[in-house]
């Protein structure tokens, strides 16, 4: 006789007290790491400036030429690295939870392609040259693509993750091709996009970053609000619906959050794809399949990865620099491979 055991589905979000304490300690360590990297990002650059000058530049400013370098170049890129990293990390966690695909990143919905296409249009057709202006085109492009993906990926029964991913891939491919056509026929657009597509936090003044912060704040709040329902949805739509989760509302809120975070990050720094893929993976390995913890860890680990990449980019080719988008892949890929070889790949 075969014994059949029926078990209640386990809520992946359920945590024990000891597990919670372990995660909290890990979170504090991640916070310390981030703080250290923030300080290092202001201290280290392509020129040597003493810590005393850095201190004066930040807290007792004068018109000293080295202090300008701190305030005008290092501080803004550090702030940009922090906010862009946070946004990319949480956006990556959101898209992986939403699509139940551990290999997803915001680019899978065509968001980066939408941003790139909009910037290409701004440069090639409207003659816009400065990043302060075409940043808003990137943001707008992301929003429009999101609406298109939502419309194309929706059925009468709501949004299917598979349909949305397919819609995103299609829209992304079309816009990618159209953007390439614009770039290849316009030398100015080609030059500007070559630089923008590499992904960088250099020359992003604070005045450029402040207007994006409210969008990031809304995106983060929404992300944490939907973290509980996303835990339930990881078990399947039927189970989530049985637990009272409103599937359509959760998906729409998650997509809005994803768009604000990913769109804002891409608007500031250009497409930096690897962080959104890798950091939520690492967070999931540390904390397990609990979205709120994954989001919290992503908030701290993603900017850490971006900042350490940016710092390395400043020193490996002194006196020149490498764009952070390039270094991120070099830094992140070995870490991810090492983790994959040591641990079981995490599902959702």
């Amino acid at each position: 006789m075969t014994a059949l055991t029926l078990r209640r589905p386990v809520d992946p979000g359920a945590v024990t007290v000891s597990g919670s304490r372990r995660r909290l300690i890990g979170l504090l360590l991640a916070l310390v790491l981030l703080l250290v990297l923030l300080v290092a990002s202001v201290l280290i650059g392509s020129t040597s400036i003493s810590p005393a000058v850095v201190w004066k530049a930040l807290f007792d400013p004068t018109a000293d030429i080295d202090q300008f370098a701190i305030r005008d170049f290092r501080l803004p890129r550090t702030v940009a690295g922090l906010v862009v990293g946070i946004a990319l990390g949480v956006a990556g966690a959101l898209i992986q939870a939403l699509t139940r695909n551990p290999l997803a990143d915001p680019g899978i919905l065509g968001l980066n392609a939408g941003a790139s296409f909009a910037v290409s249009v701004a440069i090639a057709l409207l003659g816009i040259r400065d990043i302060q202006s075409y940043m808003w085109f990137a943001f707008g492009g992301t929003l429009i693509v999101t609406l298109m993906v939502l419309a194309l990926g929706s059925t009468r029964r709501g949004q299917s993750p598979v349909m949305m991913v397919l819609a995103g891939l299609c829209v992304g491919s079309v816009l990618g091709g159209a953007g390439s056509a614009l770039e290849l026929t316009n030398p100015d657009a080609f030059d500007a996009m070559r630089s923008w597509n590499a992904g960088s936090v250099v020359s992003r003044p604070l005045e450029l970053i402040w207007p994006i912060l409210p969008f990031f704040a809304i995106g983060l709040v929404l992300a944490f609000l939907v973290s509980g329902p996303l835990n339930a949805m990881a078990l399947g739509d039927e189970v989530a619906a049985a637990q009272g989760v409103q599937l359509v509302r959760t998906r729409i809120l998650a997509i809005i959050a994803l768009t604000l975070l990913s769109g804002g990050a891409t608007a500031i720094a250009g497409p930096i794809s690897f962080i959104g893929l890798m950091v939520p993976h690492v967070a999931r390995w540390i904390v397990g399949p609990h979205q709120r913890w994954i989001f919290a860890y992503s908030v701290l680990l993603a900017p850490s990865l971006l900042l350490v990449s940016d710092i390395l980019g400043r020193v490996v080719m002194r006196p020149g620099e490498l764009p952070v988008g390039i270094v991120t892949a070099f830094v992140g890929a070995p870490v991810l491979i090492a983790l994959v070889r040591q641990k079981k790949a995490s599902g959702l």
């Binding site: 650059g45 392509s46 020129t47 080295d66 300008f68 370098a69 170049f73 006196p319 020149g320």
Partner: peptide
């Protein structure tokens, strides 16, 4: 052929 960051401007003294 080598791009320099703006930070290096201070070395032009």
């Amino acid at each position: 052929y080598e791009s320099l960051p703006f930070e290096q401007l201070s070395k032009l003294s």
